[in-house]
Amino acid sequence: MFKLFSSKFKKPSYGWSGNYSNWNDLTDSIGGYSEVSILDKTRDALLQVKNGTAIYERDSVLFDKIEHPFPLLTCLFKSAALLQRPLHIIDFGGSLGSTYFQTKRMAGPAICASWNIVEQEHYVTAGKEHFEDDHLKFYSSIEACMQVQKPDLVLLSGSVQYLPEPHLFLKKLAAYNFDFLIFDRTAFHQGKQDRLTLQIVPPEIYKAAYPSWFFQEDNFLNHFTDNYNKICEFPSYVEGEAVLSIDQQPTGYNKGFYFVNKSKHA
């Protein structure tokens, strides 16, 4: 569910705006991700994918053709090859399985031994009711997943920029010492500091607005320099996300990184 959208119009009624100093002040008047309607729309769309009546879903919208995220798939294949076995994956902020269903045809059981989604409680409840099986699981925290599973890789696709205190999370994430980390569709900008914006979702997706960070890239990467090697970086696979406009200025961009643990894979 944690995804990005870009504007193609000069004066959009949606997109990113502002440069806010306080997360809590910004959230006072907006519903954000707790909106039940967002969950319902995502659930209904993904149930069609699960049941075979639709091909592909992204951000609750159905498509007639899968858009394969080849950089992400390459990182998954490389990780499985390094371990010489299938991966146990945590998909942090993975909705009800959007990326799981998107990649399962290319990265089946030979690559992914289990796919474990960490999400908000209401998503976990819906996931367990409608989507969970022997391979796809749902948890309310990384710690809850680790009590059941021993994850090798954490995937964070368009999710970190929607956390109220992302750098505290990133510091904690690095300290877990997982074998592999993949960031995909993560928002950065050209400024010297992180920038907190208000994102308004295009109305054809759903009606919602929420805080959204744009990171300063060097500060973001500093969390991982001690424990991880950055193997590669890559642009978003989604058309229109290579450049993101803030206040109608093309100062943001969307990209991903693949990190491999130094101590485990020299």
Rank of each mutant, 00 (worst) to 15 (best):
K104L: 07
E121N: 11
M106C: 09
R85K: 12
Q84H: 12
K128A: 04
E129N: 13
K78F: 13
P69W: 06
Q120F: 05
A81L: 12
S95N: 14
L87T: 05
N116P: 02
Y100P: 07
E132K: 13
L76M: 03
V118N: 08
C75P: 02
S95Q: 09
K78L: 06
I117Y: 06
R105T: 14
F77Q: 13
S79C: 06
N116K: 02
I89H: 00
Y123H: 14
S114V: 08
G97D: 08
G94A: 07
I117N: 03
K78N: 11
S79R: 04
I90Q: 01
A80T: 09
K78Q: 12
T125P: 05
I66Y: 01
K128V: 10
G108A: 15
I111H: 03
E129D: 10
R85S: 13
L73R: 04
I89N: 06
A80S: 13
H130S: 08
K104A: 09
I66R: 14
M106I: 13
H68P: 07
I66C: 09
D133T: 07
K78P: 00
E132N: 12
Q102W: 02
F70R: 02
D64T: 14
A110W: 07
P71E: 02
F77M: 14
P69I: 01
T125W: 04
F92Y: 08
V118M: 03
G94I: 08
D133N: 15
Q102F: 05
A81Y: 10
M106N: 11
P69E: 03
I90Y: 06
D133P: 11
I66A: 14
C112D: 02
R105G: 07
D91M: 02
Q120A: 12
H88R: 15
S114D: 08
T99I: 09
A80Y: 00
T74S: 13
C112R: 04
E132Q: 15
P69Q: 08
L73F: 04
I66D: 09
D133L: 10
S98W: 02
E129K: 15
E129H: 15
T74A: 15
D91V: 03
W115K: 09
G94T: 06
I111S: 05
C75K: 00
K65I: 09
Q120V: 03
C75R: 06
P71S: 09
P69L: 05
Y123V: 13
N116R: 00
L73V: 12
H122L: 06
M106A: 14
D133Q: 11
T103H: 01
R105C: 10
H68T: 15
E121D: 03
V124D: 06
G97F: 00
S114E: 01
K128I: 12
G108T: 11
D64W: 12
L82Q: 10
V118T: 06
G127K: 00
L83R: 07
I111D: 00
G97P: 03
G97V: 05
L72H: 07
A113Q: 15
H68M: 15
G97H: 07
L76F: 02
L73N: 04
P109K: 15
L72S: 06
G108W: 00
A126Q: 11
P69C: 05
T74V: 05
F70D: 14
F131I: 10
S114A: 02
G97R: 03
F101A: 09
E121I: 05
P86Q: 13
A110T: 06
L82C: 09
F101W: 02
G93K: 10
M106F: 14
T74Y: 13
A80Q: 01
E119R: 00
A80E: 10
